[in-house]
Computed example of a mutant assay.
Amino acid sequence: MTAHLITGAGSGIGAAVVGRLAERGDELWLLARDAGRASELRARFPGARTVVGDLADPEKLSWALGHQTLPDRLDSLLHIAGVVDLGAIGELTPRAWNTQLAANLVSPAELTRLLLPQLRLSHGHVIFVNSGAGLRANAQWGAYAASKHGLKALADALRLEEHDNGVRVTSVYPGRTATPMQVKVHQQEGKEYDESRWIDPASVAGTILAALDLPRDAEVTDVSVRPGL
């Protein structure tokens, strides 16, 4: 059975991906920030297993995962979780920078490091759900964009390092998507939120699954998904 470990499974793109993978009977391992969240995820996705680890504290991930049962092999590691806090460079505090860098960059790097043996065993696939901000930084988006630019660099380096081990690496760059994060962004921007203007999370999920299901003779390295006209 194909096995996946997924972050950000509780809402938005992550929930859409988990739903699609569950429908086809794949083995699901869902990362949760605490035991309460893990219980919620198991109730929402019957049959899924959970692993507890807080992406806000990457230095403790190794200890946390070392005290839990993990899959023996992984066909994919899907980094979908993320946080955002807008603000001008002249106003952002070190805490705002560190929070976004920890969850959006350092934790994905650490989680990947910890699970590479299982991914190498199955010639697996690492997918980083990045952002349009990972390709271009706009005003007020400096810290978030920096974390996502760094995530692109992480993916690019990992792809070259793990090629001979048969591990594929894909970066997905969604534009604005109708998720709870987008609601928060609109609140921070002081704008009215209209989800019909933005990408349906299911559309991004479909892109992710297309990359996962590509035959072994090819690899999607980078793909951008933008709101339709």
Rank of each mutant, 00 (worst) to 15 (best):
V106R: 00
T99E: 13
Q68L: 05
L74C: 09
S196F: 05
V185P: 06
P94G: 15
G87Y: 00
G134E: 00
L70H: 03
T170G: 08
L74P: 02
A96T: 13
L105A: 12
W198M: 10
N138E: 13
R113A: 04
S76C: 04
R136Q: 05
P108L: 09
G190V: 01
G90E: 14
W141M: 12
T170R: 06
L86K: 08
W97F: 11
A146K: 00
R73D: 15
R159G: 11
S122R: 06
V172C: 03
R197Y: 00
T93Q: 07
A155R: 03
K191F: 05
Q187K: 02
G66H: 09
Q100V: 14
L121Q: 11
S171T: 13
K191W: 12
Q187M: 08
Q188C: 11
L101R: 00
L70G: 01
V169P: 04
I80N: 10
V185K: 03
Q68I: 03
K148F: 12
L115Y: 07
D156V: 14
S131P: 05
N98A: 12
D156R: 09
A137Q: 08
A133F: 10
S76L: 04
P117A: 07
A103W: 06
H79I: 07
I89N: 12
V126E: 09
L160R: 03
M181A: 08
V169A: 02
P174G: 01
N104H: 06
I127H: 02
I80Q: 02
L86R: 08
L105Y: 10
P180W: 15
G134P: 01
R168F: 09
S107Q: 02
M181R: 05
G90V: 11
T112P: 04
R120C: 11
K191R: 14
E195H: 13
A155P: 13
L111G: 06
T93M: 01
L160A: 13
H123P: 02
L154W: 06
P94T: 14
G142T: 12
L70S: 00
V83Q: 09
G142W: 08
T99G: 05
V106D: 03
H163Y: 04
L160Y: 05
N138C: 00
G190Y: 00
D85M: 09
V169H: 06
G142I: 13
S147M: 08
Q188P: 14
P117T: 12
A137R: 02
S122G: 04
R136A: 05
D156C: 12
Q140W: 09
L158A: 14
W141D: 13
E189N: 08
D156Y: 02
L86S: 10
A96C: 10
V172L: 04
E192H: 11
R113H: 07
R95N: 14
V167S: 03
V185S: 02
A96S: 13
A178C: 10
A155W: 00
S147R: 07
L114C: 09
G150W: 08
W97T: 15
E195W: 07
S196M: 01
G82E: 06
L160D: 09
G87P: 13
A153S: 11
A81W: 03
E161F: 15
V185I: 15
L119Q: 07
A102L: 13
G134H: 01
E192Y: 02
L135A: 08
G132C: 15
K184M: 04
L158G: 14
P108R: 09
A153W: 07
L92G: 03
I199A: 12
L151Q: 14
R197W: 05
V126L: 14
R120S: 05
Q100A: 06
